[in-house]
Each structure stands twice: as C-alpha cells, then as structure tokens.
Amino acid sequence: MTGRIAELMRALGARIVNNWVWRLGVAIRFLWLTLRESGPSFRRFHLTIREIYFAGVLSLVVIMVSGLFVGMVLGLQGYDTLVRFGSSEVLGTLVALTLVRELGPVVAGLLFASRAGSAITAEIGLMKATEQLAAMEMMAVDPIARVVAPRFWAGVISMPVLAALFSAMGVFGGYLVGVRLIGVDEGSFWSQMQASVDFREDIVNGFIKSLVFGIAVTWIAVYEGYDAPPTAEGVSGATTRTVVTSSLAILALDVVLTALMFRGQ
C-alpha cells in the first residue's frame, strides 16, 4: 500500500517537474533570448508596427464594445445597490474605480489573450509547422529577432492602450446608463468620481497592471507558438494552452499586484 502511494507521489512529482518547472525554465530562457534579440524590433520599427496592427488595431472593436457593455452593466447594478443606501451620487466613483483598478486591465487582458494571444500562437506555430522558421534560419535570419521579438513588443505596447480604452469606454457606458438613462445628477457623478479617483494610486497602478498582463500574455503566446509541435494538432493544442495559461496568469498576477498596490487602503 505504501509502495503504491510512493509510486503515485513520484508520478505526480515527475508530472509537475516535467510539465511546469522544466517548461517554465525553457520559457524564461526563451524570454531572455527574445529580449536579447529585440534590437531589430526598434531599429526597424515598421516590423513592430505591422504586429501592433494585428495585435492592437484588430482588437480595438471588441475591446471598445466590451468596455461599453461592462460599464453599462456596472451602471445598472451599481445604481441598484447604491440607491438602497441613498448614495446613488457615488455611482461615478464606483464605476470608475472598478474599471480603472480591476476590470479594465483584467477583462481587457482576458479578451486580448483570446483575441490576439491565440492569433500570435497560431501564426508562429504554423510558421514553424510549414518550415518557414527553419527556412528563415537557413537564410541566416534569426527567427527570434525577426518573428518573435516584434510580436512580443507589439503585444506589450498594445495591451496598456487597450486596457485604457476599455476603462474609458466603460466609464462612458456607466455615464450613459447612470446619467442619461437613470438620471443620476451629472455634476455629482463626475465630481464624486474625480474626488475619489487618484491619478497615481488608481490610474498609474491600473496602467502598471495592464503592462504586466501584456508582458505575461504575449510572452506565453510567443513561447507556446515557438514551442508547438509542428503538426495541426500541435498548433491547435498550443493555441488552447495560450488562452488557458494566460487567463490563469492574468487572474493570479492580479491577486498579487492588487495585494501589493492597494494594501491597507
């Protein structure tokens, strides 16, 4: 019996080490290579611009529409709750703080992972499966410098912009519902918001969050693509893993960052 348990423990340990610890090590080394080969992404910025188009511009619509909807829901739900305490005038505060501190970076990050992250993984994975990366290497061009790094930086640049857009659209959505539809006083909506949203504490911290999420999602996406087995199943599996892993990473990092940033306030 003890033998069986020991056997199970050993199998579990091997799984953890092989699937997580070992892969994490490879991924960190990959990130280091990417950073080291990042020169061309900035010297020839049009490479990165192209990828910003695919990662950022093409995510614009989904991010803006989602932000608007989330803000409207916050307006409705927030009003419903606040009115019971007779403090519907702090609706602006509620909407803005929720978005800027939490929902902006987190929901935009999740959408970004499934919209842009999966596309990056699939694209790099397919390039690998069709030997495009090998061909590039044979042409004495480093695929990490030419393919991976521009996508990585495009994601890192796009993500904070998208999160800010999400929050801004959300505040606007909350305004539409709260002020235009329900009739909360416009003046107190904005002034209450402005009185309690702090630039450094809330806006900057939200920005830092979105930047960290952007790094995490794009790192996972380029790594999974580059590491994908060069087959159809391999690429589709890697794409799924990108979405799952980066969503988990966003939520876990959010806990850590929130604990660090908003401690005791």
Partner: peptide, 19 residues
C-alpha cells in the same frame, strides 16, 4: 555560421514561403 549560410540556399520540401 550565419555568415556562411548567406552563401547557401535551401529549397524546403513544400517551399516554406512566408505566407
């Protein structure tokens, strides 16, 4: 190696064109 590869050309099985 990269310098030497500039003097080599390789045609891959299915072309491997950049899509």
């Amino acid at each position: 190696l990269f310098a030497l590869r500039r003097k080599m050309g390789m045609l891959f099985q299915f072309g491997a064109l950049f899509t």
